[in-house]
Design a protein around this nucleic acid. Structure first.
Lengths: 251, 251
DNA sequence: GACCCTCGTTTGGTACTACCATTGATAAGA
DNA sequence: TCTTATCAATGGTAGTACCAAACGAGGGTC
């Protein structure tokens, strides 16, 4: 491929930004597709007519954005990659951390999303998926009934349940948002799981929700979801006196 | 400030990543606050015991994340900055572009958000805000009734209306998501505004929605919102025959 | 013929140097 | 006092040299 026909020497103030923008534009315009290998740093250096440092700074930004992955060694280089939901989630998580978003707001938002997801999932998922969801909630409940439950594993199951339900909506944006929320709430959820009462009621709630999703009864499913978040809110307020409330949420 | 006590020489595989992580951690831990100036590149170079290139690559990533802004010249340097919602929106927009998300999914998601926002806004906004929202919708409708409406300005008013409503929820996450959605849908909305029938009905819908929000009648407000998205969906399907449907959505 | 080792090439990763461009402060001069 | 020139700090760029990892080709060994 003739890279010289794609890239032109940077002219804007910051060369590395211009380079990054040009390469990003080339990827967005599908001049490079996922899996493709960009020219090596030295080739790009020649194509753009800049120093190698400029190229490296630009590539680092693209890597951080999740647009490329970099391998070294022979046959290495920068490879175009599909942007994953993780990048969005990370950006969101960083925003949430630094802007000290209150847990109440996160919960409130997540409840809205959960309700939307539930309605769509009831309408779109097939019987198999609904059955599998129900079975997964039963497994979750069973795992918690053991004498010494592996909390980390159970928490992971809960996480997986949410993603599974989101997938049933057939809407990738809801999947993405759910994924992002889990990162934002993860340390918080994890902390609450220490409370035996909370986790048992959560699991029971999950099963009931899945049950009414499987039966196609949206009103009842939504009722259990709302109840879950009411309970979560209550647990939160209960712990509010402790000084480490805020820091407990974000690691 | 003694930077040597904060930063340690990178040890992980990629030095620049390690440096970026350490600086990011320092910012997240509030060792540096918004407005503060980080040490100069040459000072950081000394503190981390690396080459200046490594520092620059790390700073570029932080800049891209929106954590710092960089000024050159005397008294220049890297200054810590509040992470804006824009960074999240941009990441989301990039994800949407490269994953070719269908417009139907975006609309569906946005309707869920709009319904949630409306319910919360009715419950939390004060009378002044509700009245101002209603007045703004009336202005929008009036602007469209002119013989030769300035479509760009009107579209901007529509955008502003959405943000205003989101603000009325008192939940910054909903504001953020609304902001991000607008970026993702912007070119699409803009294209639809060319349709006179669509924009007139949209404006009318907005006024009705605002009216019932002001009156505190959630059911009717939600009905108008759903109707709006039904109409949007219909417009979309109508144009579906045209080959440029997909590209029209994303620039 | 199949397997393994070695060595060389490619490519990213790091260090260092030198110099430029911008910017703000400070000193000199009108 | 105001203006102007100078200087120093700092990011921006170029270039070089070398290191480290990874892969391939070739040759050797079993």
């Amino acid at each position: 491929m003739n890279v010289d026909s794609i890239f032109t020497p940077p002219t804007a103030g910051r060369a590395s930004e211009d380079v990054a923008l040009q390469i990003e534009a080339a990827i967005v315009d599908e001049k490079f597709n996922p899996g493709d290998r960009l020219p090596s740093e030295r080739e790009l250096q020649a194509a753009f007519g800049t120093g190698r440092g400029v190229i490296r700074e630009a590539l680092h930004v693209l890597k951080q954005k999740g647009l490329i992955e970099v391998k070294k060694g022979a046959r290495g280089g920068s490879f175009v990659r599909k942007v994953k939901a993780t990048e969005v989630s990370d950006a969101l998580a960083l925003f949430l951390k630094l802007n000290e978003i209150q847990a109440e707001h996160l919960i409130e938002f997540r409840e809205s999303i959960d309700r939307a997801i539930t309605l769509l999932a009831i309408g779109r998922a097939d019987e198999d998926e609904k059955r599998q969801l129900l079975e997964a909630t039963e497994k979750l409940e069973a795992a918690l009934k053991e004498s010494n439950p592996d909390l980390v594993a159970v928490w992971e199951m809960d996480r997986e349940l949410n993603l599974r339900l989101a997938r049933m909506t057939r809407n990738p944006i809801l999947e993405l948002i759910m994924h992002a929320m889990q990162i934002g709430l993860s340390s918080y959820d994890h902390a609450l799981y220490d409370d035996e009462d909370y986790r048992n009621r959560t699991a029971g709630n999950w099963r009931k929700t899945a049950l009414y999703i499987a039966r196609g009864e949206p009103t009842k499913a939504l009722a259990y979801i709302s109840y879950h978040y009411l309970m979560l809110q209550a647990c939160l307020e209960e712990k509010n006196g402790a000084p480490e409330t805020k820091s407990a949420i974000f690691e």
